[in-house]
Simulated assay, not measured.
Amino acid sequence: MDVRQLEYFLAIVDHGGFNRAASALYLSQPSLSQAVRALERDLGSSLFHRIGRRAVLTEAGTALIEPARAAVRSLATARASVAAVHELREGSLDIAAMPSQAVEPLTTMIRAFSGRYPGVTVNIRAAFTARDVIDMVRTGATELGLLATSEPLTDKEVIAHAAGEQRFVLVTPPDGPFAAGRPVACEELAGQRLIVGQRGTGMRAYVDGLRERGIGFTIAAETEHRVAILPLVLAGVGLAVVTESWRTTAERAGALVVEIEPRTTLRIALVSRRTGRSPAARTFVTCGLSALGDT
């Protein structure tokens, strides 16, 4: 038994006979009769009494009307739901993002996407390292991922779409040791107290690189919670090297943001699986990257 047979059955009921139903369905009457006989065999019961050209429902046929209508309505709803997802009228999209990139450029990308497809919910999943992001996309935990890395991506199971670069900047309290408007040479961080992220992040790799170059500093705090960095800076615990995605938020909070020389950047990439991407994922890649090109 399939839904098509139920649709044929209901057409006979609604149109009062096989001939009228066949005309409405643009079927030949023998084809319609054959489909109904197949349905009756599947159910093990006759659905109609054939009286001349008339079709009178049997008790079994009468009992089938309500569940048949429910089944047909359910199929119509399912088809409409699938169509809505493909047309991006509704649905959801899961994206893994590292904390700094979840500030920017993800905000710009989601704003552009949601402006065009407001019915699609974007679910942002936390990932603390580039490896975390790649693994979440590769294993299907999310469809897309946004990451920052100082090295070219070599994972063959994902596609990397370039999404710009972000330079490192220094965030200090407003009364910190450096003047506003003047870039700070990285050597000037010697002797400072720094707030750092966990290993595997770009910001941690940067400060570890300073130490390898002989620039000595004290780690005042190490945190996995990126949102804790700015409050710690403003509280005078130490200074922080972060990506410039934090600039607007930090300045609005009253912190001072200064550039570090020489300029050092991270590559930002939007990654996706090579196959099996949903319409929402494909559209987000196009729409999001286009939005970044417009900024």
Results as ranks from 00 to 15, higher is better:
1 M>W: 01
2 D>I: 04
3 V>P: 00
5 Q>F: 06
6 L>N: 06
9 F>P: 02
11 A>T: 05
17 G>E: 04
18 F>A: 14
20 R>E: 15
22 A>W: 01
22 A>T: 04
26 Y>W: 11
27 L>Y: 13
30 P>R: 02
36 V>H: 06
37 R>D: 10
37 R>C: 08
41 R>P: 06
42 D>R: 13
45 S>K: 15
46 S>A: 15
48 F>M: 02
50 R>P: 07
54 R>Y: 10
55 A>M: 08
56 V>C: 01
57 L>I: 00
62 T>A: 09
63 A>K: 15
67 P>W: 00
70 A>L: 14
73 R>G: 05
73 R>Q: 14
78 A>E: 13
79 R>D: 11
86 H>G: 08
86 H>P: 02
88 L>K: 04
88 L>G: 04
89 R>V: 07
89 R>W: 09
92 S>M: 06
92 S>W: 11
94 D>H: 12
95 I>D: 08
96 A>I: 10
97 A>I: 12
100 S>G: 15
104 E>K: 12
104 E>V: 14
106 L>R: 10
109 M>I: 10
110 I>W: 00
110 I>D: 04
110 I>K: 08
110 I>A: 01
113 F>Y: 12
116 R>L: 15
117 Y>M: 08
119 G>A: 01
119 G>K: 00
120 V>Y: 07
122 V>H: 03
126 A>C: 04
129 T>Q: 02
131 R>K: 13
134 I>C: 05
134 I>D: 06
135 D>H: 09
137 V>C: 11
138 R>L: 06
140 G>N: 01
141 A>G: 12
141 A>K: 10
142 T>D: 06
146 L>A: 02
148 A>P: 07
148 A>Q: 15
149 T>I: 05
149 T>E: 08
151 E>R: 15
155 D>T: 05
155 D>H: 12
162 A>N: 10
163 A>H: 11
163 A>Y: 04
166 Q>C: 05
166 Q>Y: 13
166 Q>G: 05
168 F>G: 08
168 F>V: 03
169 V>P: 03
171 V>N: 01
172 T>A: 14
176 G>Y: 04
176 G>Q: 06
180 A>V: 12
182 R>A: 14
183 P>R: 03
185 A>I: 05
186 C>W: 11
187 E>G: 13
187 E>A: 14
189 L>A: 02
190 A>M: 04
190 A>D: 11
190 A>Y: 02
192 Q>F: 07
198 Q>R: 13
199 R>W: 07
199 R>C: 10
202 G>R: 08
204 R>C: 07
206 Y>I: 03
209 G>H: 08
214 G>M: 10
215 I>M: 09
215 I>V: 15
215 I>E: 09
215 I>Y: 09
217 F>G: 06
218 T>D: 13
219 I>Q: 10
226 R>W: 12
227 V>G: 11
232 L>V: 02
233 V>Q: 00
234 L>W: 02
235 A>G: 13
239 L>I: 11
239 L>G: 02
243 T>G: 14
244 E>Y: 07
244 E>Q: 11
246 W>Q: 09
249 T>R: 14
253 A>K: 06
256 L>H: 08
258 V>G: 03
259 E>F: 00
259 E>R: 14
268 I>T: 12
272 S>Y: 05
286 T>N: 09
288 G>D: 05
289 L>A: 11
289 L>F: 08
289 L>G: 04
290 S>P: 00
290 S>F: 09
291 A>G: 06
292 L>I: 07
